[in-house]
């Protein structure tokens, strides 16, 4: 009963958010400039939440997230060039996921045995290899990239997919899978000693995280309508890592907050040129210095906890208060 109510609260929040944006767009408060910002933030949320699953829950330091985004973006661009319909777009999302998962397995099975920084550098290398391949293929139009991609998604599609991917990842993390991952992160040897196969669970998290990255890539392609291999370099992976760490490693709420703050900051400073990156760098260093565990640390917005707090308080007032 309690669970159903809490799910209801989240559902209402998501729908309310949708109608709020819808209303603001209709009222002209959100112009195309701000809409662009919102969509970018949404795409970054999808990417960073997936990356937080890999880094925060599985404890696997991946520096190659943008490579998987590239797979989704290019798959979609290629498919919708032939099939420029909404159906074509959805087909391309699933095709992108399939290819990304395949790559994640090829890359993950050997590299997820590596530890910490070695894994980071290996995943970074893997993403660079993906980028170089795209850079040299005919079908992806090489270094020039692909342009005039039909615009098949606007903010509502992005909004819905943000909700769907976040629900999937959060639910996955709050299950035996998430617990197994945390166990492996805390102490791999102990986890193995109780019959957990570390590689299997790490791979599951890696595959799921990269699949959502591919979805984000697909959205990026049809919204921005132009993609080049340069969009998916190391620096893109790094900026996703920044979102995760700034929000708090392991806190999905933090990831969303950091993605929004950085997205707004980025847009607000856009006219400043090189000074923008300088300010960005200073803010980044200062946040890390004063909040080393990220803005929200391990905090997670949970209506279950809020619920428990309220009900325990009402129980104190009325000891016989019924538990619903």
């Amino acid at each position: 009963m309690k669970n159903l109510k809490i799910r209801g609260v989240w559902l209402v929040l998501m729908i309310a958010g949708f109608y709020l944006i819808n209303f603001l767009v209709g009222a002209g408060v959100i112009d195309s400039f701000i809409e662009n910002m919102i969509v970018t933030i949404g795409i970054n949320i999808i990417l960073a939440v997936g990356l937080n699953l890999i880094i925060g829950y599985a404890g696997q330091f991946s520096l190659g997230h943008a490579g998987f985004m590239a797979i989704g973006a290019y798959t979609t661009a290629i498919i919708v060039a032939k099939l420029p319909t909404t159906i074509g777009f959805y087909v391309s999302i699933f095709a992108g996921i399939a290819i990304a998962v395949l790559f994640a397995l090829i890359i993950g099975i050997p590299t997820l045995r590596l530890r910490g920084d070695y894994l980071a550098i290996a995943t970074m290398g893997a993403a660079e290899i993906i980028r170089v391949i795209i850079n040299n293929l005919k079908i992806t139009n090489g270094a020039a990239g692909m342009f005039n991609i039909p615009n098949l998604a606007s903010w509502p599609t992005v909004y819905i997919l943000v909700c769907v991917t976040t629900i999937i990842i959060v639910n996955f993390s709050r299950s035996r899978a998430g617990r197994a991952l945390q166990a492996i992160r805390d102490d791999e040897i102990a986890a193995e000693s109780v019959g957990i196969t570390p590689l299997k669970w790490k791979l599951a998290a890696f595959v799921l995280g990269t699949a959502t990255a591919s979805v984000a890539g697909s959205l990026h392609a049809v919204y921005i309508q132009t993609i080049t291999p340069g969009d998916f370099g190391i620096m893109s992976s790094v900026s996703l890592l920044i979102i995760v760490v700034m929000g708090g490693v392991g806190s999905y709420t933090g990831t969303v907050v950091a993605a929004v703050i950085l997205g707004v900051l980025d847009t607000a400073l856009q006219s400043l040129g090189a000074l923008r990156m300088l300010i960005y760098a200073v803010i980044l260093i200062l946040i890390m210095m004063f909040k080393p565990s990220g803005l929200l640390g391990h905090y997670e917005l949970s209506f279950t906890k809020i619920w428990d707090k309220i009900s325990s308080r009402s129980n104190k007032i009325n000891p016989k208060g019924e538990q619903s």
């Binding site: 629900i167 999937i168 639910n171 996955f172 299950s175 035996r176 899978a177 617990r179 197994a180 945390q182 166990a183 805390d186 102490d187 040897i189 102990a190 986890a191 000693s193 109780v194 019959g195 957990i196």
Partner: peptide, 29 residues
Amino acid sequence: RLFDQMTVSENIKIALTKNYRESFLDTIL
């Protein structure tokens, strides 16, 4: 070697990982 970040109850549940019967779809839905 306990899982320090977890509660006692979660530590025990880890040992039951193989005994669950729900699927990935059950989990995310």
